[in-house]
Amino acid sequence: MSRRTGRVPTLVLALALAVAVLGLVVFAVVSSKTDTNASPASVAPSAKPSLGPLGELAHRKPGDPLALGRPDAPVTMVIFSDYRCPFCAKFSKDTERALAKQYVDAGKLRIEWRDFPIFGDQSMQAAIAGRAAALQGKFWEFNHAVYDAAPDKGHPDLPPDRLLQFARSAGVPDLARFQQDTKSPQLAQEVRTDLAEASALGVSSTPAFSVNGYPVLGAQPTELFKQQIERALAGAS
């Protein structure tokens, strides 16, 4: 009887240690799978990117409707984005337009768009719709209309009728042509080309950026982008 009683505390202690170890393992697994696109505030601005130097990605094509700024600007920012990504919308509203006002308008920065539709068929259709708007000179107006209407969290619903509404509010002049162009195999192929480029670079989430070949991941604070642009400007001078 006494020997059984003596073994009880030992068994309890062993069980407690096993539970503690299991808890640590679960915590480590969950932590390792945390979404890299969690709230931008949770990502330290000084965090090192998980991608290495990307090299020159900018096309610098004169008259490119999916670009802002001079083709010969000393700094280029390539954006990989999805219209259904809430963090892409945050970047558009909080950062992109501020950078355009400060650097694009001054001839120091060129911003080039790349479609990276990773949130389903509606993301793909929205990307094609953006290019359909671009054919009528209204890409950025359409782009901003979609992002301005995006919720702070979650993925917006972007069926064809809503994309048409965005085209109308963006001032696309020929809506019948816009609707026809959203069915264009050529535009769909252009989107797939962007998607393949991003995948080949190792991009796995949106938004993602290349500033003169230096990767920046996530909707980081505006100040971080300004710092990287200033470093690139200093290196280009």
Rank of each mutant, 00 (worst) to 15 (best):
V30I: 09
K108E: 15
A188N: 03
D82C: 02
K101S: 14
I118G: 03
E96C: 02
T5R: 15
A200T: 02
L11N: 02
N37Q: 12
P185I: 09
A89D: 03
R4A: 13
A127W: 04
L195M: 11
F91I: 00
K101E: 08
N212C: 04
R192A: 12
S205I: 10
F139R: 01
L57Q: 01
P151S: 03
Y214G: 03
I118Q: 08
L135T: 07
R177H: 12
V172N: 07
K101T: 06
R192T: 07
M124T: 11
A208W: 05
G154T: 10
Y103M: 02
P86I: 00
I118T: 12
Q125T: 13
S237K: 13
N143S: 12
S2L: 15
A89N: 09
A132F: 00
D82G: 07
E56K: 15
R114P: 05
A98K: 09
D82A: 04
A150P: 01
E56Y: 09
D72M: 05
A200D: 02
L158Q: 11
P45D: 10
L54M: 08
V25Q: 02
R177F: 10
Y83H: 14
L195D: 13
L22G: 15
E56P: 06
A145D: 10
S39L: 07
G137C: 13
A234H: 14
M77R: 08
G52D: 04
K226T: 12
L66W: 07
P185N: 09
A89Q: 05
A98H: 11
L57I: 03
P185L: 06
T206V: 08
P71A: 07
P221W: 01
A67I: 10
R192H: 08
H59N: 13
P221R: 01
Y147W: 05
V12M: 14
P40G: 05
S50M: 09
A196Q: 15
M124Q: 12
A20N: 10
A196E: 14
T76A: 11
D148Q: 15
L163A: 08
E230A: 12
P156I: 06
A89V: 09
E112K: 05
D148E: 15
A145G: 04
A132L: 03
V25M: 04
F87H: 07
W113N: 10
A41T: 07
S205P: 04
D174Y: 01
L15G: 14
A38H: 07
I118Y: 01
G130I: 04
R177C: 05
R3D: 06
F87M: 04
K48L: 05
G52F: 08
A219R: 01
G63V: 09
A100C: 05
S169W: 00
L54E: 04
C85L: 02
G235E: 13
V29N: 00
D115E: 10
P159Q: 09
S50R: 13
K33W: 03
L158N: 08
Y214F: 14
A149K: 03
P185G: 01
R3N: 11
F119L: 15
V191G: 06
F80A: 03
L158R: 05
A38G: 15
A14D: 06
P49Y: 03
M77I: 10
W113G: 11
S204R: 09
V216T: 11
K48V: 09
L22R: 01
G6D: 07
L187Y: 02
Q125C: 11
A188T: 02
H155W: 12
G154K: 02
